[in-house]
Structure formats: C-alpha cells, structure tokens
Design a protein around this nucleic acid. Structure first.
Length: 474
RNA sequence: GGCCGGUUGGCAGAAUGGCUUAUGCAGAGGACUGCAAAUCCUUUGAUGUCGGUUCGAUUCCGGCACCGGCCUCCA
C-alpha cells in the first residue's frame, strides 16, 4: 500500500519497521477549549487510518496525546477563575465523549503531557548533556537549532532567507531567535514542576517526542497531525528527537488538511470555529464523517451551508436502501452473490491502498448503492442482497459509516425535520386521509392543494400502489 | 520577503503520457403517476496561461498570472 509522506512530498510504498506491526503517533488536542470540527477531522482521519491498517492485518499501536498544560489552558482557566488542571480535565472528558459519539475509537494509548513530566525532564537533560540544549538563568531551556544540521527537512524552511516574516519576540536568555523552548520557567503562582533549572512546565513540542518514544520507541512508523503542525511543531519534534537518539524519529509523516468556513480559514484567532458539540446535535456521526471523508484526507475542506445537508441526503438514501433490503424476503444465489461481494472488497482495498483514497472509494460506494437499488427493484434478482449489505457494513466500519440500524438513522432525521415544520405525524396522516377522499371523488385540485401545502413545509406525499405515504423532503 | 501547495465542467471533487477524464449536486430527457413526488434509467458539460520535451500532455519540465497555506497559538 502507498502512503503520501510529507518528508518526501510523494506517495511511497509503506514498509513498517517490523513486518506486520505499525507504530503510529498522532498529535491530538490542546485541552484549552471545546473541540471544533478541525479536531474532529484529525480524529476521523487517523481513526480511519489505524482501522484500515488493522484491517490489512497489521498489529497497530496508535498513540494520541492530550496537551493538558500550556499557556492557553492557563490563560483560559484564569479567565474562568478555575484551576488549570481541573479545567483541562473537564475539557478532556468532554472531548472524549464527543469524539466517541463521532465514532472515533480510542487510540491504543491516550496519553497526557502531565503524566510524562519525569520522562520529559530526562529527555531535556540528555539534550543539555549532549550540547543540543541550554538552560538560561531565567529557568528556560532552549533547543539549539544551529547544532542540528537536519533542521528544516520536513517543512523545507530555509532560515538564511527567511528573516522577514519572523516574529521578533524578546525572550531573555535565548541565544538565537530560531531556538525553541523545551522547558518554560513558571511565572509566580503558575502551575509548575520542580526541575534542576527551577520551577517550570514543558514546552509544547517536547511532550510529543517524549510520549512517542516512551510508548512506541525511538523510531516509529507513522507520525501525524494536522497540516498546520508541520512547522514549527513537527519540525521541532524531529530536531529534538533525532538530536537525542541519532536515529530517524519517524519514517512516514502524514498530515490531514485544514478546514475553512465559507472560504475563510478556521482558526482560534479568527474565532469562526464550528464546534463539534453543536454539529453532533444536528447530525448523526455518519453524516459528519461522510462529509469529512468525501475529499482526500490531505485536502482542505471548505464548510459551506450545503456540505452537511448534502451528506445527510446521501446517508438518508443509503439507509433507506438498507432498510428496504432488511424488509425484503431473502432469496438469491450464494455463488453469484459471493462473486460480487469479493469484487466489492477488492475495489475497496484498491482505493484505500492508494493513500486512503476515500474519494475514489465513495465513487464506488455510489455505484454499489445504485446496484442494490436496482436489484431491489428486480423481482428475480439472483443476488442475496442482505449478504452484500453485510459486507458493506463490515468494510465501512473502517470509516465509521453505515453501522446503525437503518430505522434509527432514518427516524432521527425524520423527527428532526418534522420538529422544524411544527407538524406532527398525526396531523400529516390526517391530511393524507382528507386528500384520499378528494382523490376518490376525483377532486384533484383540492387533493393537490393539500399536497402543495405540505410540500411547502418540506413534507412530500408519495402515492404508491400501497397507498399514500409521506416522507421528509431533504 | 522566504518556503510549500493549488488552478479540472454551473458547483463540489478524484484520476490519468494516448483508449470513454471518475463520482456527487445542479441541468436535460425517459419510465412510473390523474398530475406530481419519490425511485429507477439515460444524458449534456471541464483540465488557468505561454512555451518546451514527446509520435502524442490535462498529466512531465520551465516561465507567467491568479488563489491559498505556513513563516506567530492552532487539528
């Protein structure tokens, strides 16, 4: 299988360090606020990757961290007049719940920065001993970037020609403005840990390197995160890790794209975030995951007003097809069905093996769904449709899609829209009865009047051989 | 200013040195229907620009234009 490696800027054949095993680390969330859809994207992408690798037979160890101490958390907690650790704890619990509802499995190890402080201190001390880092009288410890020749290999940043845009922030004791903090001295009253350099707390980058090595080893197979982390976070992780061990930190670097809202970058500073909790109130996880995975994981996604509704429409149709198949008496031939099922799995693997090409996969999914719909209409279908559905459910569990009871999904959506119209099911059924009378008397104008009136409220009436039924109009 | 990425039909979004450039939405036509809707079937429509390499380029290379990201907290 092929994986796009940010280090080489191209797709590479994936070869793990140890055959059959994958060591993967993905940078998670700083617990400084509610999770937004960007966090959801990262979680969905790496969840999918780890599940697919497992499906392909790898023994996957996937570590994902929470940053539970940093400037933002301290600032936010102070603003709320809360203890920073308690505040971080609250955010992490909330986020865990939301991500679970989103359908992302817990990583093999979910680590927290504050649980690995001694490991970080040792990491930093070794860097100092090796001459890669220095402590300042203020109690900060910086990594000496000029000592690490490979600096910039991930982000291809070129310091000698990159002076203009750099923030010239005064940090006393820092020898070179490209050096970055491994350890930060605590301001009076701030949360801190005792160290040989004074009271302080970790710099941002050190925790990921430390935890990746602690749980996975000196060299790992895949390291990932959002693309906004390439520089400086991942570049700095490489520098400090490889300075420490003298070996490659990670063989493959994978970065998911970023989210935009109506064409504008979504960021903390612009304050235009869409929060996961709000999204989950409105949409089932299938809808969100489908929307996020329709494009390649490396691409940016622009969230428009149509993105989630359109995705919901597709999922509604898919579950409707599944439901009809559920209700259909089972018939068909094993051998013919098995052949089709095998083909589905082959096509699935072919798309996913190509750097997790979910876009191509969904193109095929639409084809499979069309096929099911066709065969559903075919009275003499030679296929055992429920068996095909079972295979689709098995495969799409990897993406966290189509796992629900169809009726659960359908009625959720139906009731959501019904609530918006203010109509009850009883009222609609009454109107259908009323209209049936008009129809019987061939008073089509009056019958159509009722139908149009309901249509305005996005309730569609459908005259079927079995009578008139209603459905929401998405 | 530096680095990176992008520019595919009305929109979204894959792929590819030639064979029909996916898929979804929208549009068109049809089946079905009292008429519709839903559903199903069929279908129109695109590779920013200028050069180069090549028998042949949307695809490879280079210039240009435009857009975006990063260089500062960020998934």
């Amino acid at each position: 299988m092929k994986i796009y490696n940010t280090l080489s800027h191209q797709k590479e054949e994936f070869t793990p360090i140890e055959p059959g095993k994958v060591l993967m680390y993905a940078c998670g969330i700083t617990a400084s606020g509610d999770a937004h859809v960007g966090h959801a994207y990262q979680s969905v992408v790496f969840d999918m990757i780890s599940k697919y690798l497992k499906f392909r037979g790898y023994d996957v160890k996937y570590v994902r961290n929470y940053t539970d101490v940093d400037d933002k958390i301290i600032a936010k907690a102070a603003q709320l007049n809360k203890d920073p650790m308690e505040y971080a704890e609250y955010i992490m619990e909330k986020t865990d719940k939301e991500l679970a509802e989103l359908g992302s499995a817990k990583p093999t190890v979910q680590s927290r920065a504050t649980e690995s402080i001694p490991d970080m201190l040792q990491f930093i001390q070794t860097l100092i001993d090796k001459g890669f880092a220095y402590a300042t009288p203020e109690g900060n410890v910086y990594f000496k970037v000029s000592k690490f020749p490979g600096y910039g290999k991930l982000s291809r940043i070129n310091w000698s020609e990159n002076r203009d845009g750099v923030r010239k922030e005064v940090e006393p004791g820092k020898l070179d403005d490209k050096d970055f903090a491994l350890w930060k001295a605590a301001k009076p009253g701030e949360i801190s840990w005792d160290t040989p350099w004074g009271k302080g707390r970790p710099g941002w980058h050190i925790e990921c390197s430390t935890m990746a090595m602690k749980f996975l080893g000196k060299t790992i197979d895949i390291h990932g995160g959002g693309r906004d982390l390439v520089f400086p976070h991942h570049e700095n992780e490489i520098a400090q890790s490889e300075a420490l061990t003298g070996q490659d930190f990670s063989h493959y670097w994978m970065h998911n794209g970023l989210l935009k809202v109506n064409g504008q970058k979504m960021s903390k500073s612009l304050n235009n975030s869409i929060y996961l909790a709000d999204l989950l109130k409105e949409y089932k996880s299938d809808v969100i995951r489908f929307a996020l995975l329709r494009t390649l994981y490396r691409s940016d996604i622009n969230i428009t007003d149509e993105l989630f509704p359109e995705s919901e429409k597709h999922m509604y149709r898919f579950y409707q097809i599944f439901k009809k198949i559920q209700e259909k008496p089972v018939s068909g031939q094993e051998d013919v069905t098995d052949k089709y099922v095998t083909q589905i799995e082959q096509d699935f693997i072919q798309a996913m093996d190509d750097d997790f090409n979910t876009s191509e996969l969904f193109a095929k999914l639409f084809g499979w769904m069309d096929f099911l719909a066709q065969e559903l209409a075919n009275k003499n279908s030679p296929y055992i449709l429920s068996k095909i559905v079972a295979k689709l459910k098995e495969l799409f569990a990897i993406l966290g899609l189509l796992q629900r009871e169809p009726e659960e999904f359908l009625s959720f959506v139906r009731h959501k829209y019904l609530a918006k119209t203010g109509l009850s099911e009883e009222e609609i059924l009454k109107k259908i009865q009323e209209r049936a009378e008009y129809k019987k008397n061939k008073q089509f104008d009056l019958a159509d009047g009722i139908r149009n009136q309901l249509a305005e409220q996005h309730i569609a009436l459908q005259d079927t051989p079995a009578g008139t039924v209603w459905d929401i109009e998405l």
